Computed example of a mutant assay.
Amino acid sequence: MASNPLTGTKVFLMLVAFFGVVIGVNVTMMKLAIATLPGTDVDSPYAAGLTYDREISAAHDQAARNWQVNAHIERRAYGGAMIQLEPRDAAGRPMTGLKFAGRLERPTDKRADLSVELSEAGIGLYRGNAAAVAPGQWDLVIEAEARGQRVFLSRNRVILN
């Protein structure tokens, strides 16, 4: 049986094939990684650092108000979700006249975030609906404004099945 001798041309072709496969896999993985990258948490870490002191001050002001905001989220049969808020002041009285905004944020993918418009449905009762909410973990973010200033912020992890 005659064997084919290993020549310089064969070695060169094997090296080109090997590195071609490695480079091809790397390029494919890089394209997939870039296509599925959800982005950064903040657009500018420098600007986020500058607002840090304001956020701490706002958190202290919120704690001093001693408000209690009960949030309830309910999954609907059509795949949406209904959010209901019941804000109470320090004395336990229902609060009216606030402008509430809600967001359902996906912890793993900011592209899936959903805004929920909350409107006053009664005395101290705010409701809103989100359409087509995928099952899984979400962060329910609630913000309240009074006279153009944020007076309440809450972030809670919820699981929707």
Score class of each variant (00 low, 15 high):
residue 161 N to H: 09
residue 73 I to D: 00
residue 119 S to R: 11
residue 61 D to K: 15
residue 14 M to L: 11
residue 128 G to W: 09
residue 139 D to R: 13
residue 129 N to L: 10
residue 41 D to C: 03
residue 124 G to M: 01
residue 25 V to C: 05
residue 99 K to F: 12
residue 142 I to L: 07
residue 78 Y to P: 00
residue 85 L to F: 08
residue 148 G to Q: 06
residue 25 V to Q: 04
residue 29 M to K: 08
residue 134 A to F: 08
residue 107 P to Y: 05
residue 20 G to N: 07
residue 161 N to Q: 12
residue 15 L to F: 11
residue 34 I to Y: 12
residue 68 Q to N: 13
residue 129 N to S: 12
residue 117 E to L: 11
residue 30 M to C: 05
residue 95 M to E: 02
residue 49 G to V: 04
residue 22 V to W: 08
residue 16 V to D: 02
residue 107 P to R: 05
residue 80 G to S: 06
residue 94 P to N: 08
residue 141 V to M: 10
residue 158 V to R: 01
residue 61 D to R: 15
residue 54 R to G: 15
residue 140 L to G: 02
residue 80 G to H: 09
residue 86 E to S: 14
residue 146 A to W: 10
residue 15 L to I: 12
residue 116 V to P: 01
residue 144 A to K: 02
residue 130 A to L: 01
residue 37 L to C: 11
residue 148 G to K: 06
residue 145 E to V: 06
residue 101 A to Q: 13
residue 37 L to Y: 15
residue 138 W to C: 00
residue 77 A to M: 13
residue 91 A to D: 14
residue 95 M to Q: 08
residue 21 V to L: 12
residue 52 Y to P: 00
residue 156 N to A: 09
residue 70 N to S: 10
residue 153 L to K: 13
residue 81 A to Q: 04
residue 95 M to H: 01
residue 140 L to N: 04
residue 28 T to Y: 11
residue 144 A to L: 03
residue 142 I to P: 00
residue 71 A to N: 07
residue 30 M to W: 13
residue 133 V to M: 04
residue 106 R to D: 15
residue 110 K to C: 02
residue 89 D to W: 02
residue 1 M to T: 08
residue 7 T to C: 03
residue 56 I to W: 13
residue 26 N to R: 07
residue 48 A to P: 05
residue 103 R to T: 01
residue 16 V to P: 02
residue 109 D to A: 08
residue 111 R to E: 06
residue 144 A to H: 02
residue 96 T to H: 06
residue 103 R to V: 04
residue 63 A to K: 13
residue 105 E to K: 09
residue 18 F to A: 09
residue 80 G to V: 04
residue 32 L to G: 11
residue 157 R to S: 12
residue 130 A to Y: 05
residue 95 M to G: 00
residue 11 V to A: 07
residue 61 D to G: 10
residue 64 A to T: 09
residue 136 G to C: 06
residue 5 P to Q: 11
residue 111 R to G: 12
residue 20 G to H: 06
residue 35 A to G: 03
residue 62 Q to P: 01
residue 135 P to E: 03
residue 40 T to C: 05
residue 1 M to V: 06
